[in-house]
Simulated assay, not measured.
Amino acid sequence: MITGVNHITLAVNDLPRSIWFYTDILGGTLRADWPRGAYLELGELWLCLTLSDAPIAPRNDYTHIALTCSEADFPRLSELIANHAELWQDNSSEGASLYFRDPDGHKLELHTGTLASRLDHYRAQSESRMRIH
């Protein structure tokens, strides 16, 4: 049985730049690094950055990684991110969200909600076609 996400690995073209972004901008903690990679912690997330020999091709679909942030920290962190990252979508969902790209174009989201708050949001909408289980 799956008990959670173990880690996420992202290929990057410039390792020092990516380490800077994930530590200085997103507040992650560098736990280990080597010439072709790094391990970071962002909250409970274990993030592996690995140097790619090929250029990273940014995705054009909706695939992205959402990172949790407290409502109290959201305004400060979202302003910092917006000053250092390309935004790729406006928020139209429940809860505060900021959609941005990391230096290699990986799509990320800063979000304050939870699965429970999202489901409550849809339960409250009588016109919602979503089936909640």
Rank of each mutant, 00 (worst) to 15 (best):
Q125N: 12
N60K: 13
E79K: 04
T50C: 07
A57R: 13
T63D: 13
S78P: 01
D61M: 05
L47E: 05
A66Y: 06
A96M: 09
A96G: 07
H64D: 05
R123E: 03
L15C: 07
P58K: 12
A57L: 10
N83T: 09
E79M: 00
R101T: 13
P35C: 04
T112S: 02
H121Y: 15
R59L: 14
K107C: 13
D53Q: 12
H111Y: 12
L40F: 10
S93V: 09
R17N: 09
R36E: 15
A11P: 00
F74K: 02
K107R: 15
S97P: 03
A54T: 13
W46Y: 10
S128F: 07
N83E: 15
C69K: 01
L51A: 09
S97I: 01
I8A: 12
Y22H: 11
Y99R: 09
P75G: 02
L119D: 04
L110T: 11
L47M: 04
L67P: 01
R36V: 06
R118N: 06
S52M: 06
Y122H: 15
I25R: 03
S97F: 05
I81P: 02
R76M: 00
L30V: 04
Y22D: 06
D24C: 10
L119G: 04
L80S: 03
R31G: 01
I2K: 14
L51V: 12
R123A: 14
H7E: 10
T50S: 13
H133V: 10
A124S: 15
Q89K: 15
G95I: 00
K107A: 15
Q89G: 06
S126R: 12
R129M: 10
F74W: 03
W20F: 14
G27N: 06
L42C: 08
L67E: 08
I81E: 04
H7P: 00
L108E: 04
T50L: 04
D73Y: 02
A82G: 12
D61S: 01
R36S: 11
L10S: 08
S97G: 08
L45C: 05
S78L: 01
A124H: 08
A57C: 04
D33M: 12
D104E: 06
L77N: 08
F74T: 02
A116V: 12
A72P: 01
E86C: 03
L67Y: 03
D14M: 05
W46D: 13
Y122V: 01
T23L: 08
R17M: 12
L42W: 10
L115T: 10
Y22P: 03
V12K: 07
S18F: 05
H106W: 10
N6W: 13
L40T: 13
E71F: 00
Q125Y: 02
D90S: 14
I132E: 07
D102E: 11
P103H: 07
R76T: 09
K107Q: 14
R131V: 15
G4H: 14
P35S: 07
A72L: 08
T112Q: 00
S92P: 00
C69H: 00
R76H: 05
P75R: 00
Y62Q: 11
V12G: 04
L115W: 11
I65F: 06
Q89P: 02
E44D: 11
G105H: 06
P16L: 07
E94W: 03
I132F: 08
R59T: 11
L115C: 05
I132W: 07
L45V: 09
I65K: 08
L119P: 01
I56M: 02
D61K: 02
A124W: 04
E71P: 00
R123W: 01
